[in-house]
Simulated assay, not measured.
Amino acid sequence: MKLSRAEYKEIVRWTEHLRPTRQCMKMLKERFPNHSQSTLLSIFSLEYQKRTKRTISRHHAPDVIESHYQRYLSESKARPTAPVLLELANEVDLSPALMARIILDRFLQDLEGETREYHFSISHSVLSVIPSIILSHNISSPSFQCTINDCCYGPLVDCIKHAIGQEHEVLLRDKLKERNLSYLDENQLRTMGYDKTPDIILEVPIAVEGHIVHWIESKASFGDDHSHRTYLNEQFWSYWNRFGPGLVIYWYGFIGELDCQRDRGILLKDCFPTDISTLCHASQPGQLPQDPQ
């Protein structure tokens, strides 16, 4: 889905006071019913990560950590069945998963003190061997609750994002096979000695909407100004220098005004292109542009 900058800014303004919970995502979808859930979640996640980077330092101040921890202890004791940790995270505008990590770190400090007489130091690396201790202190359930309710941070989100990225790379390869387009994927390119590669190198270039394409990069996210500028500087221009002009697919959409580098050799799309022309006079299969490095 390609959004105008004005449409994007309207969504961003509406997300400013939302929290990274699944309930808030339902509200966002109700407010913008014409946009896909995946696009809205991607936009919100990007914006919330920017917000978190601006404010995370204050939550790591020792006095603030102690305040959060003591409040968690007292309220969880007074309301043992209430989602105290999740409520606290939402109140102070911090990712529930990050709040759980802060509280767990502080809990481990106390636990380490309790076990010093046995000369046993507790660290993150040994969490897997002390589940009974964590359960007995009633901190496992609140941490798990924060993790499953956080749509922007945490191990569950990381796994989902990785799986979605892999899924769209498979989708891209399937589309190329449907069109009988010969290509090399990232794994094949790595075995050939390329250290920084796009997801796909076309063995025979194609033309998309009149623009030559040598490579394709798959992004299972929304392309906003910040992320696209970062990708341009860290990835896309490097691919362009090595392999020539290419195509970037932002599967969850992008700001339409960002598609302004076509004449310089970088084309943006929000789906696999349908307007494809095969270049019969291109280089022979198996040949790649020479790596200048």
Rank of each mutant, 00 (worst) to 15 (best):
S132Y: 04
S132I: 01
I133F: 06
I134P: 03
L135W: 08
L135A: 11
L135R: 12
S136H: 09
H137I: 00
H137K: 10
H137P: 00
N138H: 10
I139C: 04
I139T: 03
S140R: 10
S140M: 04
S140W: 08
S141W: 06
S141N: 05
S141Y: 10
P142A: 07
P142F: 05
S143V: 03
F144G: 03
Q145K: 05
Q145D: 07
C146N: 09
C146E: 01
C146D: 01
C152V: 14
Y153T: 04
G154A: 11
L156P: 01
C159Y: 12
C159G: 04
I160M: 09
I160T: 12
I160L: 09
K161P: 00
A163L: 14
Q166Y: 06
E167R: 13
H168G: 02
H168R: 10
E169F: 02
V170K: 11
V170C: 05
L172V: 06
L172K: 04
L172Y: 01
L172H: 01
R173G: 04
R173D: 10
D174M: 13
D174G: 07
L176W: 03
L176G: 06
L176E: 08
K177Q: 14
E178G: 10
E178H: 08
R179F: 07
N180G: 07
N180P: 00
L181I: 15
L181C: 11
L181Y: 06
Y183G: 10
Y183W: 08
Y183L: 11
L184Y: 05
N187H: 12
N187E: 14
N187C: 09
N187S: 14
Q188E: 15
Q188T: 08
L189R: 03
R190V: 11
R190I: 13
T191P: 00
M192W: 07
M192Q: 13
M192N: 08
G193Q: 13
G193I: 15
Y194M: 05
D195P: 00
D195H: 13
K196Q: 13
P198C: 14
P198R: 14
P198E: 14
P198K: 08
P198I: 04
P198G: 12
D199K: 02
I200C: 07
I200Q: 01
I201E: 00
L202K: 04
L202A: 06
L202Q: 00
E203L: 09
E203C: 04
V204L: 06
P205R: 09
I206M: 10
I206N: 01
A207L: 12
A207H: 06
E209Y: 04
E209G: 03
G210D: 11
H211C: 13
H211Y: 15
H211R: 15
I212F: 09
I212M: 12
V213T: 01
V213H: 02
W215R: 05
I216A: 11
E217H: 09
E217V: 09
K219P: 03
K219Y: 12
A220C: 13
A220S: 15
S221G: 08
S221N: 13
S221A: 13
S221P: 02
F222G: 08
G223H: 01
G223E: 06
G223W: 03
G223I: 02
D224W: 03
D224H: 06
D225P: 01
H226A: 15
H226D: 15
S227Y: 09
S227K: 14
H228Q: 10
H228R: 07
R229V: 06
Y231S: 07
Y231F: 15
L232E: 02
L232H: 02
N233T: 05
N233Q: 11
N233D: 14
E234Q: 15
Q235V: 04
F236L: 14
